[in-house]
């Protein structure tokens, strides 16, 4: 029991950055949804079932502009295609997660991914239980934010402009942390350089899918160079 409480406390501490960001962005979503005629129950349903930040913001405009089923499906496909990427890199880590696996996969947002992708979990804790706790806490923050926004959002007078930078800052700290612990910086550099190049070439609406494709191709071609020799040998023995 003491152990459980310790692990829960650790999960809360690690998710505080996401809590800040999700409460703010979730509130923003709730306000937007309510203003467009989709009040608290709608905002709640979207945060429970869709649970994808930028997509939910777009969903409000799709709903209020009377979009078709096809354009809703295509928009979601384009905006959320990056989640394919998260899945590919989490297959091994979530492999034996058992009954928690469906939720772990369902709840793999950008922010949750940034907390679980490094695979560090407190000593003595069951990793899958810990990741589950982190994932669930994050969705709870998001839901609280959306409901608050839909209920009392218009009463906020404090100037919150710029507070959404918390999410960017979270990704930057994860990036720096990975940089400090990586044995090879090529994947990190490739991710930044390829994405910036695609942003310049394709523009801010279309660059994500070309970036992902090029990153996948680039890392695949570089496998011989990036794979440490001794591990490569181990793998050959396993195959």
């Amino acid at each position: 029991m003491i152990m459980n409480r310790k692990i829960f406390k650790e999960a809360v501490i690690r998710t505080v950055p996401v809590m800040t960001g999700y409460l703010v962005l979730g509130t923003g979503f709730g306000i937007l949804s309510e203003k467009n005629g989709y009040g608290v129950w709608w905002a709640l349903a979207m945060s429970v079932f869709i649970y994808a930040g930028s997509m939910q913001y777009l969903m409000v405009s799709l709903l209020s502009s009377g979009a078709s089923v096809i354009s809703t499906a295509l928009t979601t496909l384009m905006v959320n295609a990056r989640h394919l990427f998260y899945g590919i890199s989490m297959i091994d880590r979530y492999k034996d997660a058992g009954k928690r696996k469906p939720y772990l996969i369902f709840a793999l947002t950008d922010e949750t991914y940034s907390l679980v992708c490094r695979g560090d979990c407190p000593p003595g804790a069951d990793p899958h239980r810990f990741y589950f706790l982190v994932s669930l806490l994050n969705q709870i923050y998001w839901i609280i934010g959306s409901v608050l926004g839909a209920l009392i959002g218009s009463a906020i007078t404090f100037n919150t402009a710029g507070i959404d930078f918390a999410m960017t800052a979270l990704f930057i700290t994860v990036f720096v942390e990975q940089w400090l612990t990586a044995e090879n910086h090529i994947p990190a550099i490739a991710g930044v350089v390829i994405t910036v190049a695609c942003l310049i070439i394709f523009g801010s609406d279309l660059f994500l899918i070309p970036s992902m494709t090029l990153i996948l191709i680039g890392l695949s071609l570089a496998r011989k160079k990036l794979e440490p020799k001794k591990e490569k040998k181990e793998e050959e023995d396993n195959d």
Partner: peptide
């Protein structure tokens, strides 16, 4: 898990976080 996916699982997080930082600043 094929060796290739294990390899991607190891290198992709670095590239993805780089991509996400650029995405936030787009």
């Amino acid at each position: 898990t094929p060796g290739f996916i294990t390899y991607l699982g190891r290198v992709l997080p670095y590239a993805i976080m780089g991509m996400l930082v650029v995405y936030c600043l787009r």
